[in-house]
Write a protein that binds this DNA or RNA. Structure first.
Ligand SMILES: [Mn+2]
Ligand SMILES: [Mn+2]
Ligand SMILES: [Zn+2]
Ligand SMILES: [Zn+2]
Lengths: 146, 146
DNA sequence: TTGTAATTGAGAATCAATCGCAATAAGCTT
DNA sequence: AAGCTTATTGCGATTGATTCTCAATTACAA
């Protein structure tokens, strides 16, 4: 995680941007978070811990964190975009339960390979891909009703 | 397409909803559209053709069209959700060019099978899935720059 | 034709995200 | 260490898509 802070600092410097305490706090909060997160959750976490940190500042730093490769947007199914750490976190797809909201992650190299094949077929140079499956998780499908 | 109107009418009746001229016009406009569409485009198409048709009415009928299986939301990458006809349109993934905006569609049964396998592994009952790949299309990748 | 409950259009309301700006401060240069 | 330049912050105002409110209309079954 100290590593990621260094990466962020370096990224900022390379673009003539400043490494501010606010940006450091935002990144640290994200790194200490377990799974996915959204702006709202991040704001409350930071706002609770230390008094003032503007929501606008969080919104403004998200693009920088994405461009530096530290986080990525993973979903936009629901109301708000969801993000997750991307450095050191292998690419994966998501199973989203539309009943209880639980999100399962899965990794499948074969699918990734087939995606590459599709891109080759179309002479398409991919930069990002998302595979999301919605439905009912193990618990919810067996609870009752279909 | 006459078929789809019948389906919509039946769906509405089954839920004690009314088959209004506005709903018919909205569905007809969608059916006459070639590919993907969004609310804004639909509104302008309908508004141009025939004077008054409220934006609110369009927003209100989208969920009904989705629930009746006639359309589905396919993307939410960009600013606004994109929809497409779903009846008689086999499931497919999307290649979205982040330079020119072009959208290519692809179909891959092997990927679909692997997705099913993943669902089986997790005892997950899928209702919908989306595979989106962003990057540079054939033209844009060869134009200039990387 | 009548009655009832759903639907419409228009504008108001909501709410996430962005913007504008004056005060602040990061970080380079002496 | 101090000064300078320019990016950044917080705050409130603004935007813009979507939803809501409500009175007037209308589908549709009896
Ligand atoms: Mn994930
Ligand atoms: Mn499509
Ligand atoms: Zn569940
Ligand atoms: Zn392109």
């Amino acid at each position: 995680m100290i590593n990621q802070i260094a990466i962020f600092r370096e990224y900022l410097k390379s673009r003539d941007l400043r490494f501010t305490p606010e940006r450091r706090l935002i990144l640290e909060a994200i790194l200490s978070l377990p799974g996915h997160f959204n702006i709202e959750g991040l704001y409350y976490k930071l706002h609770r811990k230390m008094g003032r940190l503007s929501l606008a500042t969080i919104y403004r730093s998200i693009p920088h964190l994405i461009n530096s490769g530290l986080i990525k947007e993973v979903m936009r199914y629901a109301d708000r975009p969801q993000y997750e750490k991307s450095l050191g976190c292998p690419h994966h797809g998501h199973l989203v339960c539309i009943n209880c909201g639980k999100i399962l992650e899965f990794k499948d190299d074969e699918i990734e390979k087939l995606q590459d094949r599709v891109c080759r077929e179309y002479d398409f140079k991919p930069t990002e891909h998302r595979l999301g499956i919605r439905g009912y998780c193990k618990n919810c499908r067996h609870k009752k009703g279909k």
